[in-house]
Design a protein around this nucleic acid. Sequence first.
DNA 1: GTCTATATTGTGATAGAC
DNA 2: GTCTATCACAATATAGAC
Lengths: 201, 201
Amino acid sequence: MGSKDSTTEEKVLEAAKEVFMKYGLYGARMQDIADTAGINKALLHYYFRSKEKLFDAVFDGALEKYFAQMTVIGDKSMPIKERLMQYVDNMFEFFSEYPQMSMFIIKEISINPEMFYEKVKSLKTQKSLLVPTLQEAFINEKIEPFDPVLFMVNLHSLCAYPFLASPLYKVMLKKHGYDWDGEAKDKIKQSVKDFISFKFQ
Amino acid sequence: MGSKDSTTEEKVLEAAKEVFMKYGLYGARMQDIADTAGINKALLHYYFRSKEKLFDAVFDGALEKYFAQMTVIGDKSMPIKERLMQYVDNMFEFFSEYPQMSMFIIKEISINPEMFYEKVKSLKTQKSLLVPTLQEAFINEKIEPFDPVLFMVNLHSLCAYPFLASPLYKVMLKKHGYDWDGEAKDKIKQSVKDFISFKFQ
DNA sequence: GTCTATATTGTGATAGAC
DNA sequence: GTCTATCACAATATAGAC
């Protein structure tokens, strides 16, 4: 992965990901993608017939990765609390690599919900297994139960939002002596884990 | 406000808000705005000289409202915990009316940071007074101190994200028997207040 | 496979009648 | 103030040489 001399198709996909992430389907320009990939517009159409097709390729890859990192939740060899801690690590690693992806997916969903539900149907990875897994663990691991749906919403909020709003936080946090790419991200991650500990105390 | 027979200019602004929120500056189409307002494109240019000018009008209003609802933080007639609870109410009310605004602002910032910092400079409302206010309260109200910056990030995450991701949650929550526009939003709000109580216990 | 050149369509903006 | 018609240019897409 990430070989220096990647194929043209890979370069196109990488460039398209970058531009589509930033501007969305409607705002993105094929010229911009071509420039980013270091080729000309005609080649884009050679590899992917149209803008829509190119977008589909990017969006599909994004969705796959978005759901892939939550499989640890289902690993019953660990206690649920440990799985959740691992899940938080996964999310922070994932969002560090693709900080805009959460926003990108949500944005496209809000514009075109039908497309999203079509695509999710064809995904093998099961989504949202967090709630039933939690309910199961309450019984099996004799944990004081709490509302699993609210917990899921809170947890995702705490993990995803700092990355969504990172353009804002990169400036804001600096004013308070924190460096986003340095300690701030790790401290935020720890605060999410503290929240989990609080719920499982 | 919201009179049924609003002026054309008001209708244009309302339509522009809707379309710009959804597609952003680059993705939005003047034709789309005109259709939404129930007029033709030419009239848009009659009231606002250009697309950029129309966008500015929308964005300025958005920013103003975005910062306006946090002034309660500075109201020293109440204990800090009470102010925070009120602040959460404000945010949920605000985001209920403008669920996409947080995303809209962040998106535009990520595309064009310079414009944003230009605009913020010209705003009178002080931003991010949360951190110094908290530090002051730790002393004045003899509260067990915690990291105010991390608390700010967590709090904003818990409030803003559910609305950002509402296109997702509207479907996801329904599967678990919750109705977003019914009880779900109130329950999420309560969970945020629980988080505040946890930090101030 | 990759390019230049060009066709075709979409989009912001304006002119001018009413 | 509001409309229709149209212009100028930008963006997607294709043709065809190499």
